[in-house]
Amino acid sequence: MADARSEVLARVRAALRDRPTPPEVPRDYERTGDASLALLAERVAHYRAAVHEVGPDELVPLLARLLAGKRIAVPADLPWQVPGVTWLVDSPPLPVAALDGADGVLTGCAAAIAPTGTIVLDGGVGQGRRALTLLPDHHVCVVREDQVAGSVPQALARLDPSRPLTFISGPSATSDIELDRVEGVHGPRRLEVVLVRAT
């Protein structure tokens, strides 16, 4: 008997004996959209996540206020220095118990999608590995205005699919019981998004 691989491929080829024509894909759907911080803020808030909008100079004071006195997990290359916070730096990698016990995690992001209220992490600068933003119960994520895309197509075009990507739209949630949406299951139960204006 042939191996599974060649048999499955042979079955596929036999099934396509009628040689169906691969259709052209009509790409006439919207590619662009509103990339404003205002729309992103509204859409993130719709998922019952907290949203803050600040100018560049107000970022660190805001983070200091949000995180004061807490034990916060961070990637080793976090670009912000915030006074009054106990940092749990993920280098060497923190054990899962330490992440699980942290008060929260602070990261940046790779991109955001305004119309869907989504932030995307790709493990790049200021974001860390995926487990870092998963186990702490509170995720504070900083989004720069220039990172905001106005549509899903624009966002995907900016992302590198070979990196591990996490699209986050609000805190973890379930609708599994009577389709009643409940925020906060296994992922961070609180999501706080800080939007930083370009100027």
């Binding site: 859409r43 719709h46 998922y47 990698p93 999608i113 119309p115 869907t116 209220g117 989504t118 493990g123 590995r129 995926r130 487990a131 699919p161 070979s162 990196r163 591990p164 990507l165 996490t166 699209f167 986050i168 739209s169 609000g170 805190p171 973890s172 949630a173 609708s175 992922g187």
Partner: peptide, 21 residues
């Protein structure tokens, strides 16, 4: 499916990423 603009989490991975996952 869930009638949301976007579901809370979408994960994308490509093979194995050393040090992550």
């Amino acid at each position: 499916s869930t009638a949301e603009r976007m579901n809370p989490y979408t994960s994308v991975w490509t093979g194995v990423t050393p040090g992550d996952g």
